[in-house]
Amino acid sequence: MTNLFGQLINLFAALLLLIAFAMLSQRRVLSLINLFAFQGLVLSVSTAIVAWSSSQHHLYYSAALTLLLKVLVLPWILHRLIRRLNVKWDVETMFNIPTTMLVGIALVVFAFNLAAPISQMAGTITKGTLGIAMASVLLSFLMMITRSKAVPQVIGFLAMENGLFFAATSATYGMPMVVELGIALDVLVGMFILGIFFFQIRETFDSLDLKHMEKLKEE
């Protein structure tokens, strides 16, 4: 039975990475949000599986929290946001997508090599997944770098948090509940603040293109 759980978690880890790559190669904001929601779902289910297999009950709460926050609330807010801001168009990427993905593959290899010694020490059934978690954090970071519009950057930021969360559940069976609640609150509040920023940015520049921010530097 443990074997099957291990395989399932590996499968979900791979799905997480797959979604991270899908986000990296996605041009449309709307699909990006849906992918983010889907990633949250995968995260939540995999957390529940870890909870079941390791009988760590507090992980169930984490799973529920993830489900609520990352699958329902945040995507809903993001959907509202892009409708209000009217930014459903294609996202222009800075580099073409295969190049970005090639860099992504290099990052995956790097992350795995980095994580290899740590996962040797971890005694959990989900040894191999730490590399994947780290890779998805790096990939989300990469996504933030390669997008010039504000909304995808925020999604990248949120996806990065997903990767961290996955690392925490898979390597150490989750963080203490307090910390998790704190992070959840942080994410939510951060989301609101960023939403407000979007409106401010658009009012100032008539666009959400962050290239305009370059004007802000001192001449």
Binding site: N10, L18, S25, I97, L102, V109, G128
Partner: peptide
Amino acid sequence: PEFMGTAFLLAVLGMLIRFLLGS
């Protein structure tokens, strides 16, 4: 080409995952 490039890289990634996770 982008679509196909993505397919190609995903397939390479699959092979890498196989090497990395051993599963």
